[in-house]
Amino acid sequence: MQGPRASIFLERQTYRRRRLIDWIKFLPVLGFVLWMIPLLWDTGGDDTVSTGAALIYIFLIWFLLVLASYVSARSLKTALDRRDQAMSQVTDEQP
């Protein structure tokens, strides 16, 4: 059996993992909102955004989303590995 300290530690990890998954779920929503922002831009008149600037904006978001997704995927793998490890430990201790 795990001691009370160890179980608190595990709980904390579970909590972090859940929040990480929340963040992963939120990413597409964030991306959608950011990519919809160009719709607010003026399409006529003097304040028109240039195609070059729009291009840079869209690709910058793309790059940041890929980066965020990469980092979250890596952290998720670490978190899941840690969970599996903890679970295998528990099962080892309870034959």
């Binding site: 959608f32 919809m36 831009w41 028109t48 955004v49 240039s50 195609t51 070059g52 291009l55």
Partner: peptide, 24 residues
């Protein structure tokens, strides 16, 4: 390239909102 874009026929951001969101 950016300078060439400025001079090209699609220099300005002209997107129909419906098409942009609908196609995504």
């Amino acid at each position: 390239i950016l300078a060439r874009i400025e001079q090209s026929e699609f220099a300005n951001w002209e997107i129909q909102g419906g098409r942009w969101a609908g196609l995504i």
